[in-house]
């Protein structure tokens, strides 16, 4: 029996499909997420909206916080490590965290490299804005991908942008000859071996969720209609007026994304959504997606 194989990692990610993964900062929030039907929770010190507002360096959460959340729920617990910070990732593995998000929401730790994810027994999810980024992360051993969007904004436009770009590029790739594929790989900075896999399947070879700016049931449905396998909701739930109700509604919307009647029902009377930020008002150097 072999632990931590790539199939064990990517297979685990397959189990999340159709589901919602929610950011939580306390055990109480984790229980609300589980009861609402989340397929996993992301244990964090601060949600992205607060990281954005407060500034400073954002790091891996305190192990005490992570353990409290692990003790409170039976569903998988994920946690974030800084980009390139493999020491944080090793700590998270030692804590028994089920999945590591190597995340642009935290302040990057390595200006050159991402984490070598093959070196770990636990799986990693990484963000991408386009096919090149997705393929590089997969080459580094990511077992799951999420489009980045722009975290903490409550504004879905960047999530849509990244999903659209990814879809367009995969469509173009499927029609390419081998020679075209290699040159295309060079253009977008993607390893040819990974592109071949994507070309053969007509989709990423790992599960792809959407993230960054999803705040309503309709946002979740939109991302599913664009082809993602599920959604991460960061600040959108616990920065809203009625987190319990909104969490349940987003879970329902993620499953019944193609059923506008259900969407109409679950979207009704949710109270105020989180306050949103127009992307053009954010200075370029403060955009998390460029990390």
């Amino acid at each position: 029996m072999d632990k931590g194989t790539y199939r064990v990692k990517t297979g685990f990610a397959e189990m999340f499909k159709g589901g919602v993964i929610m950011d939580v900062t306390t055990a109480d929030q984790a229980c609300i997420a589980e009861e609402a039907g989340a397929v996993a929770v992301m244990a964090l010190e601060r949600v992205p909206a607060d990281i954005r507002a407060q500034g400073g360096v954002a790091r891996m959460a305190d192990p005490v916080r992570i353990k409290e959340i692990q003790a409170a729920v039976s569903i998988p617990v994920m946690a974030k490590a800084r980009i390139g910070h493999f020491a944080e990732a090793r700590i998270l593995e030692a804590l028994g965290v089920d999945f590591v998000d190597e995340s642009e929401v935290l302040t990057p730790a390595d200006p050159f490299y991402h984490i070598d994810k093959w070196a770990f027994k636990i799986p990693f999810v990484c963000g991408c804005r386009d096919l090149g980024e997705a393929a590089r992360r997969i080459a580094e051993g990511a077992a799951m991908i999420r489009t980045k969007g722009e975290a903490g904004t409550g504004n879905v436009i960047e999530a849509v942008r990244h999903m659209r770009l990814l879809n367009d590029q995969i469509r173009r790739l499927t029609g390419m000859s081998k020679a075209e594929l290699v040159t295309y790989g060079k253009e977008i900075g993607a390893p040819a071996e990974v592109l071949e896999l994507i070309q053969a399947e007509g989709r990423l070879p790992v599960v792809n969720f959407a993230a960054g700016g999803i705040a309503t049931p309709a946002d979740a449905a939109l991302m599913r209609l664009l082809g993602c396998d599920g959604v991460f909701v960061g600040s959108g739930i616990f920065k809203s007026a009625d987190p319990e109700k909104r969490a349940q509604a987003i879970v329902m919307a993620c499953t019944h994304y193609d059923d506008p009647k259900v969407l109409a029902e679950v979207s009704a009377g949710l109270g105020e959504a989180m306050p949103g930020i127009p992307i053009e008002t954010i200075p370029d150097q403060e955009l998390m997606q460029h990390r």
């Binding site: 029996m1 072999d2 632990k3 931590g4 194989t5 199939r7 064990v8 297979g11 685990f12 998988p76 593995e93 028994g96 965290v97 089920d98 999945f99 027994k121 636990i122 799986p123």
Partner: peptide, 10 residues
């Protein structure tokens, strides 16, 4: 069988 770190195949 525990958390994901202990998941396995065979």
């Amino acid at each position: 069988t525990g958390r994901q770190v202990d998941s396995f195949e065979g």
